[in-house]
Simulated scan of single mutants.
Amino acid sequence: MASVRVGLSGWQYAHWHGSFYPDGTRRADELSYAAARFGSLELNGTFYGLQRPSSFLRWRDQVPPGFTFAVKGSRYVTHLKRLRDPGTALANFVASGLLALGDRLGPVLWQLPERTSFDAEVLAPFLELLPRTTAAAGRLAAAHDDRLRAEAWTDPGEDRPLRHALEARHASFEDPAALQLLRDHDVALVVSDGAGRWPMLDHQTADLAYVRLHGPTELYASRYDDARLDRWAGWVRRRHDAGQDVVVYFDNDGHAHAPRDALRLLERLGDVADPWPP
């Protein structure tokens, strides 16, 4: 049965205290507080640099059973190497501790730069390398280089499917060839609302629908009003009814809009969203 999860793009924001987090909430308790209210969160620190297995284990232990993290792929792969020759970088990324999340590991998000256009000769080999199961991820992680020789994590644990989503921000990804390539690899094309700064690419390319809401009128800062949330709730329901699993993450963290908007969307999806807490 298809699932629906609504959550946040990160959770460590000092200005959320007093509006989302109760005054006096310790930084160490922010994750458990957010995870008690949402079924999924994005791990964004993984985009900026390699983490440690101990960090993934700590995050795993702070969330309840059934919760999942979406893990943002390394910008070294997407922004510096621009998806070219990503083998060792991918291995290092996975070996940094993703598999330590166990059954809390959800989809992996690959965000491309705004100016990156579709190039089949670059995208196809990258998609081929992405592991589709945790067992395959463990084999890939074993190819890590000496940067992780002391703290690599390659144990896949119980073998489970591993999904991927691509957040492209260039209109060229509406090329039918790009969409077909993503469908061939069952990779979700992220529906990304960026306040009009980049095109919103709304195409079904996988059995997963992945949405990132960065703000409707001002990037990372504006709130979603009732009419917009009603429209997004309808969109989620249509995808769910078509048999897709749906994840929605709010990234309009300014003024603590993200958690409030996410809770308001959950209210509209109460009969289809995964019940939380369980």
Rank of each mutant, 00 (worst) to 15 (best):
A135H: 12
H79F: 08
L129N: 03
V248D: 03
W276L: 10
D186W: 04
P278E: 13
T217S: 15
E30D: 10
R147C: 04
G157M: 09
R149C: 11
L127C: 13
A136R: 13
R84M: 10
R37M: 09
T25E: 01
V246W: 04
R5L: 03
E121R: 15
G87W: 14
P53H: 06
T88Q: 13
V71W: 09
P259D: 09
L98A: 09
G270Q: 14
A14G: 05
D274G: 09
V187Q: 03
D225V: 02
D261V: 06
L148Y: 08
A177W: 00
S172Y: 08
R139C: 10
A152M: 08
G102R: 14
L98K: 07
M1Q: 08
Y224H: 08
G97K: 12
A34I: 03
A137Q: 06
E267N: 06
L90M: 15
L99V: 10
V63M: 01
R239T: 01
Y220N: 02
Q204P: 00
D23L: 13
L269G: 09
P107L: 12
A36Q: 10
L189I: 04
A70Y: 05
R104C: 11
L269C: 07
L181S: 06
N252A: 09
G194M: 15
R82D: 00
E218A: 14
R75A: 10
P278Y: 07
G49D: 06
Y48Q: 05
T78W: 04
D245F: 02
R132T: 11
P156M: 10
T217N: 11
H255T: 00
G66K: 02
L101W: 04
R223C: 09
P107A: 11
